[in-house]
Each structure stands twice: as C-alpha cells, then as structure tokens.
Design a protein around this nucleic acid. Structure first.
Lengths: 144, 144
DNA sequence: ATCTATGTAGGAATTACTCTTATTTACTTC
DNA sequence: GAAGTAAATAAGAGTAATTCCTACATAGAT
C-alpha cells in the first residue's frame, strides 16, 4: 500500500505509514478520533487534521473504505479487494463484525428498475448487542 | 396526533402543531433545517432549538421516525403504524422513495444466531439517481 | 547537501445539534 | 375571566465532528 501511495505521487511520510499501520489487521475499522489516538502514541504532535486529511486521501486512493455506523462518526476500514460485506454493530461496545450477506442480491431488481432508479451504492447495517454485551444489556436468557 | 400529545401531558403549542403539519403528507421526510424553514413561514421567530426539541419529543412519542441518509443530517418522517420500509435516495436532488423490501426477511437467521448477536434494529438504504436526475447525472442512454 | 512541491501543525471556521436562561404561554383553579 | 404554575419558547452560547487556512517543515529528486 505504501508503494501504491508512492506510485500515485503521494509522499510516504511517517505519519501516513503510521495511519496505514492502524489498519493492518483485516476487518478492523476505526473512527478518525481513534486513529488519531493510535497515531499519537508514536507521533504525539500529529494533528487531527492530518489524520482526517490522510484518511480522505487513502479513501480517494481506494485503500480505505468509509463506514457509517449511525452514531455521527465516520469509520474507516481497509478496502477489501473482493468480498463486499456489511456489518453487525454492537450498540453497547461499538464493536462490529463482518456479515457476508448483501441485500442487493435478494432484492427484486424490477422493484428498482420500474422506477428508473440508477443504483450507485447502498448501506445495510444491523444494530444490536454482541455476545459479550447481550447479557449486560438486559437479555432474558431462555429458561433463565 | 394532537390528542396524543395532550394525553401524554404535553402542551399543544402552535409551534408544535405547525411542526406536525409539515408531516401531514405520508411518506414525506424532512431534516430539522427543512422543518425549521417551513415552520418559519408561519412563525418567523421560531428557534431552531424549538424545532429540534419538538422533533425529538415527537420521536419519543413514536409519532415520528428517524431516517439516516448518510449525508450527516437526520431526517424525520411520520411513523407508519404497519408497513416497515426502506428508501431509494437520490444523490442529486435528495428526494427519496419508499421501498417495500426488507433485507431482514431474506437473511439467513443462522448467520446472526451463530454469533449470539441480538438484533435490535437495522438500516438499509439504496443511493443513486432518481428518474429525474439520472440523465443529468451523466447517464448514458442505450443507443444515445 | 540543496531545493521545492507536498505535508504538517495548530488554530479558526463550519455544520448539525444541544444547553442555558430569561421570558412567555397553555392549561388549571378559582 | 383573572391569576398561578409549570412547561415551552427564543436567543444565543456551547459542543462535537470535520474541514479550511497558512506559515513552516520535510520527503524525495537532483
């Protein structure tokens, strides 16, 4: 990905590398603020704006993808080359899991075509409580 | 709906009535700013805060529902008693149409159950260009 | 090492929304 | 119909997420 930056004419700055490093683990997604916190561990002076600017640059390059989790913060994750996916998002801890199901595969395309609507993108997220948080969130266990 | 307000102990103020009136037409949804603009036609001094406060109140009462169209603004629409639905949202003009398709009906529930995820709610919106905007948005007509 | 286009820091600006406070008003009680 | 009271409002300041501005610093070419 660093080569990618260089070949597109972007400079490979330590800050940029550090921001990219945050996303090394597949499936991880962080808000700008979280990335800022992480990068600050190595570069205490890095500005929030630098983080935002670089996240946008990486998005433009298609290296990162944007997620909207309905909480007012935009999150970023490493773009997956192939597998398009959606998310299960925990309302308590904020963690999310990937979901290999896409509603567009199931929707009757006539529903959309008959309205002459040209689809560009879509969002599908399921909100609820993950296994760790379900109990704490007032889940009634069957037989409990 | 006005009786509903009164019976819940809320006062029926002219501003509140005017805000409600904005949503008389089924399927219409407006951002707080749009509601503010509309209400201002009759009450030029109505504050934006009053609009936000009342939209929240009406949401709490279940009279309005919240829509998140990914553009940073929250929108509201009259809660439909029965028909749960999603939206086709135009990226150009911002208008949206209702879509009577819900992905939750098609998802393999084992996918979610095996992760012990307790579903609370979900979002599904399709973004693109409506029939009026598709041409203007650079649509290539077949044979054109 | 030097040069310079690009990147950075840090603060100001912007946008959507919320809080604070003094004032007004919808509803109640007489 | 007048007066009281708590809730609602107006106006503007405050907040949180994000973006803009610009003087200064530096990565990468020479």
């Amino acid at each position: 990905m660093i080569d990618r930056l260089r070949s597109e004419g972007y400079r490979v700055t330590p800050q940029r590398q550090e921001i990219l490093r945050c996303f090394k683990a597949r499936g991880k997604h962080y808000s700008a603020e979280e990335v800022h916190r992480k990068v600050r561990r190595r570069f205490p002076n890095v500005s929030l704006d630098t983080v935002y600017r670089n996240l946008n640059t990486l998005k433009e390059l298609g290296i990162l993808e944007v997620l909207n989790f309905d909480d007012g913060k935009v999150r970023y994750e490493l773009a997956r080359e192939s597998a398009h996916h959606h998310h299960l998002i925990c309302l308590k801890c904020g963690e999310s899991q990937e979901l290999d199901f896409c509603p567009l595969k199931f929707i009757d395309s006539a529903l959309i075509r008959e309205r002459n609507f040209r689809v560009e993108r879509h969002s599908f997220e399921i909100y609820g409580y993950c296994s760790s948080c379900a109990g704490a969130a007032g889940n009634r266990r069957p037989g409990g």
